[in-house]
Amino acid sequence: MLITGIKSRPVYDLLRPLPGGKRHIVAGQGSGGRAMLRLLDELADLGQQATLLYSEESFSGQNFLAQLQQQPAVELRVYASNQALLEDLKGMLGQARMGTRLYLTGSESFLGTAMQVYTAFDMNRDEVLREHSGTLVRRVWCVHCDTYTENVTQRVYQCPGCDLTLVVRDHYSRRLAAFQAVKADAEVPGELPQAEELDT
């Protein structure tokens, strides 16, 4: 079974103003605030403003709220958690009209769950951009007990659901918004692969 070098991980975009947008929704989290600021500048050059959704939940502790508050915007909504932001985004997209453009930026976990939200609304590829930022922490799914673990940084970790020592594969499911992990020492108990940081 292949662990590394699998090609199912998404390729992310750079946020830039999308043409034809009547309403721009920019949703970001933690260090994604940096990409939000850059995008807002570019929108301003085109004379356009956006609705901003920002979650202060951050793995790396980065917070761009103060800078975002300085920006002219249609509206700025702030959330304590990514979950709360995504709930609100769901409501917004539910009422969105034609011409909505969605911009997402933040950790891979955040982008993955946000993609689940907008996929449910059938948005087209040319209506959404995703920019990854910050550390490459992963949301991981345990194939054995169905537990999701957020913010995994190590190739080998212990599953909080079933206690098995798992190895994270570079295999990603957009539906589950998660990487897959399998028992690391399945063949010979105790024979573990090399521990390493997940930085690729």
Binding site: M1, L2, G5, I6, K7, S8, W141, V143, R169, H171, Y172, S173, R174, R175, L176, Q180
Partner: peptide, 24 residues
């Protein structure tokens, strides 16, 4: 043979073949 059906549901051709070496 050694894959997860629930994980693969909804995946595209390229994604579910991601683990196969050399073919790409």
């Amino acid at each position: 043979a050694d894959y997860s059906l629930r994980f693969n549901l909804g995946m595209s051709w390229e994604e579910f073949h991601g683990p196969v070496p050399l073919v790409k």
